[in-house]
């Protein structure tokens, strides 16, 4: 499967690019493993995304996968289609 990660704002600056291209095969294509791979290949994102014990943890970023918010996914499920992952930048403040 092809995985395209689109970065925005400060994440783009950190990674030095707008998009990351990855791929996965068979049992690698599980969401938490895909995010593990993203963070392994781009450790500069570790402050914002982390994977511990098959759980994804985010810190101030919004993640939307193929137009569908990550909250609606089972992160242990095997993905069967190419993915476009939007990762929106850290924010602060609010009321």
């Amino acid at each position: 499967m092809r995985i395209t990660v689109k970065l925005y704002g400060v994440l783009r600056d950190l990674a030095g690019r707008e998009t990351l291209e990855l791929s996965c095969e068979y049992d690698e294509c599980v969401l938490y493993r895909i995010f593990e791979k993203i963070v392994q290949t781009h450790p500069e994102l570790k402050n914002y995304i982390n994977v511990v014990d098959k759980e994804i943890y985010v810190r101030g970023v919004n993640i939307i996968i193929n137009g569908r918010h990550i909250m609606f996914y089972d992160i242990n499920e095997i993905v069967k289609e190419d993915l476009l992952i939007d990762i929106l930048p850290p924010v602060s403040g609010g009321s």
Binding site: V58, N62, M71
Partner: peptide, 14 residues
């Protein structure tokens, strides 16, 4: 319920 900041800093779980 204003979830905007909290929900982007938690484990993604419905």
């Amino acid at each position: 319920a204003w979830t905007v900041v909290t929900e982007i800093s938690m484990r993604p779980s419905l």
